[in-house]
């Protein structure tokens, strides 16, 4: 059950999308998000959607995996859609009880759903095609300049990659502790909210104790392997931007420019 989480999962592959420099991909995703928020009407949305479709096609990621990724946020999507539908003032279409649905409301709700869905799919495409390590490496170099104003960029990147490394371990451990407590008759499925919250204590206490123990042991193990912060550290994998990175970057810039122009004309 806990193992089914696909959020932020990485699908190894060798497509163009996989081979791009992670820094490029992070910048591309940012450009894409900006374009998405600038889009106004069908034409500009269409342009962004076309870029997304091409990117998905190139990456070789199964569209079904992208759709599946939407499941956890289905509620948020519906919620925003309903809010927009009901609370946008404008020309009334239907009206019942205290609610009025307006033409503007329908439009905003529609574009809002489109925006969230495309936003999620676009960012998932990034995590699906970029290994967590490459992603942290990319972030670390992109944010490198912040070191000058004393932002602990290396430490943050290290924390992030260790967190990613331990997620599967902790999920497995949670499963194990849950089974062990169930074997002693613990009941997680019935009772009111308070009872259910209390039922979590036998899971959370051992989990925290174990997480602290792991952190402690990991810290010693890292020190034993000569870890002493980011100073003078070299890398097995050095990030390198190639011609293809610049080409794709150019294409995305063109898309953004296109969206801005189209939006200007209300399209």
């Amino acid at each position: 059950m806990l193992k089914d989480i696909t959020l932020g999962q990485f699908f190894p592959g060798n497509s163009l999308a996989h081979r791009l420099d992670p820094r490029t991909k992070i910048v591309l995703t940012l450009l894409y998000i900006v374009a998405l928020f600038c889009a106004k009407w069908f034409v500009s949305y269409g342009l962004v959607a076309a870029v997304l479709l091409i990117a998905v096609k190139i990456s070789g990621v199964a569209p079904r995996a992208l759709v599946k990724g939407l499941k956890p946020i289905l509620f948020i999507i519906c919620f925003t859609a309903v809010l927009n539908l009901l609370y946008t003032p404008g020309e009334p279409l239907v009206s019942f009880w205290i609610f009025t649905i307006t033409r503007e409301g329908v439009q905003t709700a529609f574009f809002m759903i489109l925006r969230i869905v495309m936003l999620i799919m676009g960012t998932f495409l990034l995590t699906y095609t970029t290994s967590p390590i490459a992603l942290t490496d990319g972030l670390e170099t992109l944010l490198g300049p912040l070191k000058k104003i004393r932002v602990p960029v290396h430490e943050l990147a290290m924390i992030m990659s260790i967190a990613l490394r331990f997620i599967p371990t902790l999920i497995e451990e949670t499963d194990k502790i849950m089974s062990a407590q169930k074997a002693r008759g613990a009941d997680f499925e019935t009772g009111n909210i308070l009872q259910r919250a209390r039922a979590l204590v036998p899971i959370l206490v051992p989990l925290f104790i174990s997480a602290f123990r792991r952190a402690d042991e990991l810290a010693v193990a890292m020190e034993c392997r000569c870890y002493h912060g980011g100073q003078g550290r070299t890398k097995l994998r050095v990030l390198r931007c190639e011609a293809r990175d610049y080409l794709v970057l150019l294409a995305y810039c063109l898309m953004l420019a296109g969206v801005l122009v189209l939006a200007r004309f209300g399209l």
Partner: peptide, 17 residues
Amino acid sequence: VRFRVGLVFQYPEYQLF
């Protein structure tokens, strides 16, 4: 059934709370 068939997991000390 879980009360009638008691199961002690491997490294059970990690379940104490």
